[in-house]
Amino acid sequence: MISFKSHSGIYTLETKQELAIGLEEAWTFFSAPGNLAKITPDHMGFSITSGEAKRMYPGQIISYIVSPFPGVKSNWVTEITHVRDLEFFVDEQRFGPYSMWHHEHIFEPTEKGVLMTDKISYKLPFGILGRMVHPMLVKSKLNQIFSYRRKILDEMFPA
């Protein structure tokens, strides 16, 4: 399930996915920055340029290069601002394509494995122009990325 909401120019994407793995296995996989490339579409040219050597910890800076659209490369720097082992972590953009990016990764044990929730609050630059391009460019791209992620995770961790 992927849902989008908007309020005062701030957009929220929320997606939930149940995986047939234990909480510790889920945490180990998702708290390792290097695994993000495994669940990002290849055409995005995603590459971590620093900060992937250690498991996530508060204050960790991770930098990336990503190509959101063909021929367009963007540097992106995030900081891991909050971590509660086996429960959640938060990354926030410090430099990159958004005016604001706050991404919560939440893990909850279930009878069948773990429920993983991604909640992203973001704001686009360029005021009304950014809001005008949101539906066709940004929302559709994020939907594509998280749909791809869902498919890959279902293949990696089959029920």
Rank of each mutant, 00 (worst) to 15 (best):
E18K: 03
I80Y: 01
T117G: 10
G71M: 08
E92S: 05
T40Q: 03
V72W: 04
I10S: 09
Y57F: 14
F88K: 08
E52G: 15
N35T: 10
K5M: 14
L23M: 02
E155H: 11
L137T: 04
A20H: 08
N143D: 06
H134N: 14
M116V: 15
Y11K: 14
D91K: 02
K16F: 06
S121H: 12
V90Y: 04
W27C: 00
F88H: 15
E108Q: 13
I21S: 06
L142Y: 11
F89S: 06
P109W: 06
G127L: 15
Y148H: 13
M44R: 06
R84L: 13
T117D: 04
P125E: 08
N75P: 02
V114C: 03
H43A: 12
T12I: 05
P58Q: 06
L129E: 09
H82T: 08
H134Q: 15
M156N: 10
L115F: 01
D154R: 11
G34H: 07
D85L: 12
G96T: 12
L142P: 07
R149Q: 02
K5F: 04
P135K: 10
F95A: 13
H102M: 11
K123D: 03
K73F: 14
S140M: 08
S67E: 14
R94E: 06
E52W: 10
S63C: 14
S147F: 00
E104L: 14
F30A: 04
L13S: 01
G59M: 03
H43M: 11
G9Y: 03
E25F: 01
I80G: 01
Q144W: 03
M100G: 01
I2T: 11
T110D: 04
I120Q: 09
E14R: 13
G9M: 11
Q17H: 10
K141I: 10
R150Y: 00
G34F: 04
K5V: 06
L86Y: 13
I145F: 00
T49C: 09
L137I: 15
P41F: 03
M44T: 05
P158S: 11
S3E: 12
Y11G: 05
V66P: 00
E24W: 04
T81W: 06
E79Y: 00
T49D: 05
A32D: 07
R149N: 01
I120L: 15
S99F: 06
S74Y: 05
E92V: 12
I2A: 10
V83H: 01
I2R: 01
H43C: 02
S50L: 03
M132S: 14
L36R: 05
I120H: 08
K151N: 11
H105A: 09
I128K: 12
A53G: 06
I48E: 02
T40C: 07
G113Y: 06
T12N: 01
